[in-house]
Amino acid sequence: MSRLQKIPVVEEKKGNPLARVFDDLVRFCRSRSLFILHYCTGCGAIELPPAMTSRFDMERLGIQPMVSPRQADILLITGYVSIKTLKRVILTYEQMGSPKYVVGICSCTVNGGMYWQSYATAKKLDEYMPVDLYIAGCMPRPEAVISGLQKLMDRINSGEADSWQDYYRNYDYYLGNQQKLFGEDWQTPTDIITEAKHYELMGEGTLGQHTRLLEQHQKPLEALEMRLGHNIKEPVE
């Protein structure tokens, strides 16, 4: 009986075999080419330069740093996020192109770490955005960071790392937690609900009481006015 239980259940693959091969290829390439956006919030950032440069060299795994959220695949949160920072982290996360992954480095992102009693930090990162991987430690060494990223690569390759879909499926939950911190009129420039419809990722948790609250407060977005420096109003003395 015990041996019978161990027999793996293989899901029967359906669809066009050529498309399946193609999907596998894209997944493999996704896992072998990861552009990271390191949002260096806390002290954990100090372990990233050695992980990237000659001592540990992340580029041999195909991981390289990028500078703008549009280009990146991984959002790397390295340490405690204060409430002010968290707003920016969420804006950054929503601008990244999916599939996107969030990696929380340091214990502070897991449960607040030594900032547990602080009134100014957000404790658990995964209440505000879906996190694919935590690397615990105060702070984790570069080896740990790299082995964590390798684990993420395996999960991407096998198709398990799809928590970016969770943000669309359970948007109400994440928005609720965000509203709790930032107030009821919290609004980001990205329209997540329309995006969820576009990707056909509407889940049961996409809409709810918090998104209704958002609709009440939502202001239409306007493009920023383009101005040259000398047009900016001087402060009145």
């Binding site: 894209v26 493999f28 390439c29 072998r32 080419s33 060299d57 195909g62 192109g97 599939p99």
Partner: peptide
């Protein structure tokens, strides 16, 4: 910079991945 550098097919991986992203 005394590193090892990317694997042989890295440029191809990058290009395929970028074209295979969901958000465009």
């Amino acid at each position: 910079q005394r590193r090892i550098g990317p694997p042989f097919f890295q440029p191809l991986y990058d290009i395929i991945k970028l074209h295979g992203k969901r958000t465009q």
